[in-house]
């Protein structure tokens, strides 16, 4: 990716249509390919993990069950008893993002969660869902949330716009948080990897010093493994919190 002595950190985020002319016509880039791969991997993990359906689970089955129970407990603990009906959605969301984040850590792969269009679409889906659920559960009382209870009426002209603004900024913060974390991680990978190639141009001394950026990249992989699961978790738990507000009577 490093052309000459320049560092092209953003090239890795470029989309290319795949499958030739058909891909061009359908606007099918590597991004949907990795989405499909993520979905297939998660489904295969669950399918092969749960295939024994044993009373005493093996390691693989126990891992699948831990995933199920972790998300289910999170949904029900956060949202309340209604969380059970949102559990499949939270599970889908969490594992879609997690698999996307982790697939991107493989060399030569692509991270679809590093595109603001994708993360914003996910965030908007959550936002629209919470608004629809709020209106369905609370009806017109939903709009009362924009005026905090107990605040004096004199403050209403100030408070109501702030509350509306903070409500509308939810999908923005939700999507930018994930997008920025993924972009930042991959930009740093690219930068330190490029340093290695640049240092290789300085002969033996460069080869020795190149160990530094490689070591940093190894450490960054560990950090990105943490960030990947953390961002998926943050996205899922914030969705749960928004849904709890939506189903609260």
């Amino acid at each position: 990716m490093a052309g000459g002595s320049s560092i092209d950190v953003l090239g890795q985020f470029e989309l290319h249509s795949v499958f030739g002319g058909l891909g061009d016509a359908l606007h099918f880039s590597q991004s949907p390919v990795y989405m499909m791969l993520a979905v297939v991997l998660v489904l295969a993990f669950l399918y092969f993990g749960m295939r024994p359906a044993a009373v005493v689970p093996g390691r693989f089955q126990a891992a699948a069950e831990v995933c199920y129970e972790f998300i289910r407990n999170m949904a029900i603990d956060t949202i309340g008893p209604e969380g059970a009906s949102f559990f499949p959605f939270i599970f889908t969301l969490f594992f879609f993002i997690l698999a996307g984040n982790y697939l991107g850590l493989l060399p030569f792969s692509y991270t679809f969660t590093s595109h603001i269009a994708v993360t914003f679409a996910l965030a908007m889906m959550v936002f629209v869902l919470t608004v629809v659920v709020s209106l369905k559960v609370q009806g017109i009382r939903f709009f009362a949330h924009f005026m905090p209870a107990g605040a004096s009426l004199a403050l209403a002209p100030l408070l109501i716009p702030i509350e509306i603004l903070s409500f509308l900024s939810r999908p923005v913060s939700l999507s930018i948080r994930l997008f920025a974390n993924m972009v930042a991680g991959h930009v740093m990978f690219e930068i330190f990897a490029s340093f290695v190639i640049m240092l290789a141009g300085f002969g033996v001394v460069g080869d020795v010093f190149a160990i530094g950026p490689i070591a940093i990249n190894v450490a960054l992989v560990a950090l990105e493994l943490l960030v990947g699961v953390l961002q998926a978790y943050v996205f899922a738990i914030l969705t749960c919190i928004y849904l709890r507000e939506a189903v609260a009577h």
């Binding site: 989309l15 290319h16 249509s17 359908l26 606007h27 099918f28 880039s29 991004s31 949907p32 989405m35 499909m36 979905v39 998660v42 489904l43 499949p88 959605f89 889908t92 879609f96 679809f112 595109h115 269009a117 994708v118 679409a121 996910l122 889906m125």
Partner: peptide, 17 residues
């Protein structure tokens, strides 16, 4: 391609769900 991945992503997400 940027907007196309959103359409494809929505479809894939729906199937996944």
């Amino acid at each position: 391609l940027v907007t196309g991945q959103v359409i494809w992503g929505a479809f894939i997400f729906l199937v996944f769900y």
